[in-house]
Amino acid sequence: MENTVSQQEKLKQLTEKELNKPKFTAKEFKRQWVLIAISAVYVIYGIIFYYLPLIGWIMAFQNFKYYDGIAGSKFVGLDKFKFLFSDKTFLLVIRNTFAMGALNLFFSTVMAIVFAILLNEVRNRHFKKTIQTISYLPHFLSWIIVVAIVHDALTSTGIINELLLKFGIVDKAYPFLGDPNMFWGIVTFSHLWKETGWNAIIYLAAITAIDPCLYESAAIDGAGRFQKMWYITLPSLRPTIIILLIMNMGNVLNAGFELQYLLGNGLVQSVSKTIDIYVLDWALNARNTDYSLGTAAGIFKTAVSLALIFLTNTIAKKTGDERLF
């Protein structure tokens, strides 16, 4: 049923597309010269700032020296990649990036959905509005501020230790920020604190789009509140969840920079360092700069991100779900 409807839609869109298809005639060119001229300027801008850096990928196959430039530097084939995959730090960094990315993706998706569903169950409009307004305030704060807040909450005199001491759970302040076992948890929680309310907005919008008839007929069938949430709200959110999951898949590896860079310290380095920080180290390290290595690591990251997007998209295609492309 749904299938035929969407096919009809597609057909309609196709014919519309045919009708509106631009005709490449001299007259059209003349009529649109302003548009063409302006967009040409944008193309030049785009090539410089978005496409030229891609040419920089050549550096990964060279022993790049800044003053020799790309033209003058010596090619070394895959040596830089070979070094990367034999570098223990790099392997550690890959593990950290994936682990924190996956933890973050999983928990932020679950929390956002739970929060949206629970908020939707509130009947008092003012209470609902107040909670929602508070919930996405942290989204607008910079990571610098968020890290300051997390840091203050977790120091020896911070609120967390104060509460733990008061309830006798620990006898002396626990050094959260210096404990490698705690770092991934702290990172995940910080993400949740900053983004849960914000991520829930899309789910809330999707929930309001659910046909109320579904709930009414479920109520007539004697469904309770939990049953309605489980059998109607959650399945209705499925397409939204899948689309966002695909989109976020490409960002799993991108989510590993600011927070880890700002919150990490010497004591937790083995678990806090991510691919981006590794790249930055090669770029800014005054004694031992190696642009080629950093570029190679960056290429690895981009390649894996693209692969993840395509993989999720293919899985969504197989299971018959909504997909990005």
Binding site: I55, W57, V279, G298
Partner: peptide
């Protein structure tokens, strides 16, 4: 989707 990455951008 395709960005050059930190170092190529820095050098550019």
């Amino acid at each position: 989707y395709a960005s050059g990455g930190l170092i190529p951008v820095l050098i550019l």
